[in-house]
Design a protein around this nucleic acid. Structure first.
Lengths: 258, 258
DNA sequence: GAACAGAGTTCAGCAATAACGAACAGGGGA
DNA sequence: TCCCCTGTTCGTTATTGCTGAACTCTGTTC
């Protein structure tokens, strides 16, 4: 473990949250190292473009090179690359927006976002991270994750984003059980009021979950008695095809616990 | 300058290009340091999530935390935040896609992309970097950059993306002069065959260029004799309003050299 | 207007620490 | 089965990065 690198990353992390830009002194206090040390780290990071110093205030903020690196990650991400055509097809078929996500710690990161065909105002860019327990994508992934990881996530902090977000571990455990049963996960107004989600897991070569793909849209349209089942089936089928393309044979449906 | 941090960033850079994932040995060779050193760096980066080790091959690739950092940069970016409503309005008014970009080295990074209202196929996410000389955004920014920087960029390597990309420094210099004259830049099929661009510079507090905003679309539609002038005026006006919001008083038009 | 307070920055020296060479474990291919 | 190549670990050396104190400059306050 290289401490100076660790500290450099801590600097970046500190610049991520809270204030848009911080001074050397404030950073030094927060991280718990001396001022000159932080200064040296910042100068190095600046030379590499990971950090930029504001000409007027002398304070530091994140640099543009980080965007390039982030994009490079997304481009090398096999699941994302492969999922793009499938996501577009699913969006075209269902008329809803499609998200593709992977599990990062206890968050779901949206690595691809296919807009709904007739949509107009559509925010949320790829790269957003959301609590796993508040999304259909998250539930779909966690349901098929190794048991140890499931327990860890269930016993971790469970954030509520709306009044309907499920944070009770036992209720969640039952939901995950159901996901394993029917092969897809549903979320209703747990992430955003008025919106719902339907998602199915994607498996890779080693038959481990790689991520999930799912629909997002207004509850009325998505979970309508008429469309709900068709949406679920279309989603699950897309996930299966994607899994097959990635070499994962454990495509959906019930499976023995790890 | 902290060498270990520098090397850690070099590792990330190396993982950015070429192969999606690299082994310890290969990385060590490319960077020119010993194997154990690279290993220690990778372990540290992995602990922070900036790098991920592939379970099967043992090779390393970029990690998801980079996306979070990249997004954090975009969120803290004042120009981007402020430009979003203006970009949407311009897209609605002109019926074309709108890009907002900043200059990063000799590249233009697209920090925001407002889709055209009636568009369907929507590629290119924010975060893409393009050669400055092949985009209207780049020309708009460089035309109002400090003279020293202009010279440096003109004497640097000028990449051609299509047969129509201008790479002759003298021609470019004349184009920049014209941009300063009329207050906006035009590019026709220099970035992508069939597409054109119109862009105007955005100024910030200190009256330095902060970036540019512009339209992108099919040549026929964008540079049509009928629409061309209206598009240019709308773009320039949007840029002026944005500049005013950012506190930049030097809004468009001719200005004395620095 | 002058003095102060706080910022970012620089310098020199000590010692912790990161880099290296050599040796180890584990797979895949021939 | 053997070999070669991978990623990994260990222990030593001196390189390297950390700290305290001092400097400069901007902005504020009296």
């Amino acid at each position: 473990m290289v401490q100076s690198v660790r500290r450099a990353v801590h600097v970046l992390r500190e610049l991520t949250g809270a204030a848009p830009r911080l001074g050397v002194t404030e950073l030094a206090d927060r991280i718990g190292v001396s001022k000159p040390t932080v200064h040296a780290l910042l100068r190095t990071l600046e030379a590499e473009g990971l950090v930029v110093q504001d000409a007027e205030s002398g304070k530091y903020q994140l640099g543009p090179a980080l965007v390039t690196l982030g994009n490079a990650y997304l481009d090398t991400h096999e699941l994302r690359t492969r999922s793009m055509t499938w996501a577009n097809a699913l969006a075209a078929k269902t008329g809803e927006a499609v998200w593709v996500g992977v599990l990062v710690g206890d968050q779901v990161m949206v690595v691809h976002h296919a807009f709904r065909p007739e949509g107009m105002v559509q925010a949320l860019e790829t790269g957003a991270t959301l609590p796993w327990n508040a999304t259909a994508l998250g539930k779909a992934v966690v349901a098929f994750a190794p048991e140890a990881q499931q327990e860890k996530l269930l016993s971790g902090t469970l954030v509520a984003l709306t009044g309907r977000t499920v944070t009770d571990p036992e209720v969640l455990r039952a939901q995950l059980e159901q996901v394993r049963d029917i092969g897809y996960a549903v979320e209703s107004q747990e992430l955003t009021l008025g919106d719902a989600g339907i998602a199915a897991p994607i498996f890779e070569r080693s038959s481990a979950v790689a991520g999930a793909i799912g629909l997002v849209g207004p509850v009325e349209r998505l979970l309508d008695e008429e469309h709900r089942q068709a949406h679920a089936i279309a989603t699950r089928e897309t996930a299966r095809n994607l899994s097959r393309e990635l070499g994962g044979f454990r495509a959906g449906g019930r499976l023995p616990a790890f």
